[in-house]
Design a protein around this nucleic acid. Structure first.
Ligand code: NAD
Ligand code: NAD
Lengths: 189, 189
DNA sequence: TGTATTTTGTGAATTGTTTCACAATAGATC
DNA sequence: GATCTATTGTGAAACAATTCACAAAATACA
């Protein structure tokens, strides 16, 4: 778009944070701007890509191809973020008949495929009841990071990273904030 | 299951936090335990249900019935959390022919339905490009809270709550943690 | 070339959160 | 019923994150 320079307050506005925050964070990672001239977009983008390792693609698998697993596997924009879904898995034989574009493998092929593609991160979208069991299997196969969508705390060795994404909580938190806001407003009347 | 008492360290273990955290939080909301006897499960559950308003159901709508919108609208467990999806909407006429269980309304019926069901919270799962436009429409109709799945910062009046859920970020964060962990490990060898 | 202006970079101050430490106390044991 | 024990409840301490405030630098302009 022809923009060559950008200022901490511009980025802050777009990101919904303060300019100081932007500068502190950049400073933390050694990103230098130009006093008076702001940051050069070119080098800034490159620096950010390196910091977030977007220059290297990461191979991941999706386990559990129900509602969520399917939605995630069909999202095309992950590629632009260095997230490369190489295969998806499900225990249900009905799901293996690829009705759509994406191929779903049986669990038996998990080991072979994770090894072949050097997969270290898995997206876990199985029902609550199977989550720990599938998690154990993933850890056994050498998976080192799990994005867990089921509302359970997974037990993993300390060398495995788990990020719990609880969509019910995300929605509930908005419901609560709205309720509290309304109550506050009532008090002022 | 017959359990009548529970201790701060039991809950802490299950939740992955410290016992002090559990007690501080409970104390903040006036939940009293019994020194030596821990907390009574019955009254604790009731207290939590009240704090999170799970005793009152909240009507919400889903706007954008693509991959994610469909996945969310098919999730049955929201009901148990007081989240009641009363209707779903999409601009695409093809989506209105309900291939499945859930009915998808055209955007023209948004006003009528949100009013009828007293909806104040919306789940926004439309493409990035339409997000702000649809958001504006929702705010105009009186929506006070938005769970936003598109990777853009929505501009809303201060009386509207937005919770941004960025699934790419959630996955990326695990990829980064795993990479950093591996690098650390390499240093020790 | 000198002065004014804009924006960065960062210590210091502030604000917020988590952990520590221990007195208070309810219940268990003898 | 006296003593011992486990657990809460919470100020104080430690730690973490954010905001403030301003000197330093780069550019613009006279
Ligand atoms: N869909 C949502 O909007 C939503 C919202 C909040 C939380 N979640 C959570 O996300 C997870 C997935 O939700 P969903 O709606 O996609 O569930 P789903 O039931 O639609 O899909 C789960 C899939 O996992 C597969 N599966 C079951 N056991 C398996 C195993 N042992 N190994 C491999 N695959 C197995 C099933 O065959 C199914 O295809 C659940 O834990 C759910 O609680 C989903
Ligand atoms: N699917 C994922 O896993 C995923 C991951 C990360 C982020 N997201 C974000 O979530 C959002 C939804 O993703 P998706 O994969 O479901 O997209 P999608 O393209 O599958 O679905 C979007 C839906 O919104 C509808 N729509 C478009 N414009 C509209 C309008 N003006 N009013 C009403 N409906 C409209 C479309 O008809 C379509 O059905 C996007 O912003 C995407 O960036 C999705």
């Amino acid at each position: 778009m022809g923009v060559t320079r950008v200022y901490s307050y511009t980025l802050a506005g777009k990101a919904g944070v303060t300019p100081e925050q932007v500068r502190k964070d950049f400073s933390e990672y050694g990103i230098k701007g130009n006093r008076r001239g702001g940051y050069l977009t070119e080098s800034l983008i490159r620096a950010i890509e390196v910091i977030f390792s977007r220059d290297r693609k990461s191979n991941v698998v999706v386990v559990g191809m129900g509602n969520l697993g399917q939605a995630l596997s069909r999202y095309e924009r992950f590629a632009g973020r260095g997230i490369n879904i190489v295969a998806t898995f499900d225990i249900d034989p009905y799901k293996h008949k690829s009705r759509s574009d994406i191929h779903v493998y049986p669990m038996e092929r998990l080991e072979e495929i994770t090894e072949r593609f050097g997969v270290t991160v898995a997206i876990l979208a199985v029902p609550e009841i199977s989550a720990q069991e599938v998690c154990d299997e993933l850890v056994n196969l050498g998976i080192r990071g799990i994005v867990n969508f089921s509302p359970v705390l997974l037990k993993v060795p300390q060398y495995v990273v788990v990020n719990n994404v609880n969509l019910s909580d995300e929605i509930e938190s908005v419901i609560l904030s709205v309720r509290r806001m309304k109550e506050e407003q009532t008090l002022f009347l």
